[in-house]
């Protein structure tokens, strides 16, 4: 299933040889198990570096804004949706891109592996037939692939690229799932319960901004956290500051987030930051019937309106 690597290399080689693109953004095999590194390949003799497996959770669309020239990019379903959003926001030009679409069965989450094996020191991992074999000091286990999916992949409804120039394989079957079960559970809580829950969740935040920087949509020249006149949010790890940061960050994702999971994946302390972005995603869908990054010619939901938008909360 994940024999996409050869196909990706083949396409990349062809594109570079025919000078259709100036460079290809893809992955190279990581230096440690369960990690791969984004890479920019500009010469056909370097395409052998390109690699694909279940650990390509980084959203490569993050490397597109402000990049000059014609770019080839290897993109999963969620990545292509991000490209659509970036294109709506004039951060990329579709005709400058060659999208090598990857139908995706979901990326895996190393935190789930660590949890099962009881260690963060995994020496090796391999995959086949829906199973994952993982080994290290004192363990060698065979796990179900489906149990190890990133949380966002479990509920993904756009596994196939929504825009592409070429696919590396046949499309995969889309799933039909309830995306918002956890959000509804929180919505049903009392204010106190909600408050306590989120205080706890964000208490571990170390303000490293990995969530922000892993996101393709955080491209502002100056982030609100760096504004000093006035200062909107303190820079400490005080809970008020941390929550303020996460609220504003999440709100900036309203109607844009494609739930690629890059933020949550990047967090070094395991904060489920998608709980905020998914709430906004749910509201945008329910209130305005909009799903981010699906149609190139749509306007983002906060850049448009309908005269009869819901307003029962307004006196």
């Amino acid at each position: 299933m994940f024999d996409y690597t050869e196909k990706i290399r083949e396409i990349a080689r062809r594109l570079l040889q025919e000078k259709k693109v100036d460079g290809i953004i893809g992955f190279k095999k990581g230096t440690i198990p369960m990690m791969n590194q984004p890479v920019f390949i500009t010469s056909p003799d370097r395409v052998e570096l390109l690699h694909w497996d279940s650990w390509c959770g980084v959203n490569l669309a993050n490397y597109l804004p402000k990049r000059e020239g014609r770019i080839g990019i290897v993109a999963k379903g969620c990545d292509t949706r991000s490209i659509v959003v970036l294109s709506q926001e004039n951060q990329v030009q579709r005709d400058q891109l060659y999208i090598i679409g990857v139908p995706c069965r979901g990326m895996l989450d190393r935190r789930k592996v660590w949890e099962v094996v009881g260690s963060t020191d995994v020496k090796g991992i391999e995959e086949g037939n829906g199973k994952v074999r993982v080994w290290g000091n004192g363990f060698d286990l065979k796990l179900e692939r489906s149990e190890l999916l990133q949380n966002n992949c479990v509920i993904c409804v756009h596994r196939n690229p929504v825009v592409f120039d070429e696919l590396v394989a046949d499309e995969v079957e889309e799933q039909s799932v309830d995306r918002y079960g956890d959000i509804r559970n929180i919505e049903a809580m009392s204010s106190d319960e909600k408050w306590n829950l989120f205080q706890e969740i964000f208490s571990r935040c170390i303000r490293c901004y990995a969530c922000r920087n892993a996101c393709p949509f955080c491209y502002c020249p100056q982030c609100f956290v760096d504004e000093s006149r006035p200062q909107w949010v303190g820079k400490t790890i005080d809970r008020t500051d941390t929550l303020t940061f996460h609220l504003l960050r999440a709100f900036h994702m309203a109607g844009r987030c494609t739930d690629c999971g890059a933020c949550e994946r990047a967090c070094p302390v395991g904060i489920p930051v998608r709980l905020l972005t998914k709430k906004l995603e749910k509201d945008v869908k329910e209130l305005y019937g909009y799903e981010a990054g699906v149609q190139l010619d749509e306007r983002p939901p906060l850049d448009t309106y309908k005269p009869d938008d819901p307003e029962d909360f307004i006196k």
């Binding site: 709100f251 709430k279 509201d283």
Partner: peptide, 10 residues
């Protein structure tokens, strides 16, 4: 609408 909901949500 979205921001009010978000604040209530947390």
């Amino acid at each position: 609408a979205l921001f009010k909901n978000l604040l209530e949500y947390v």
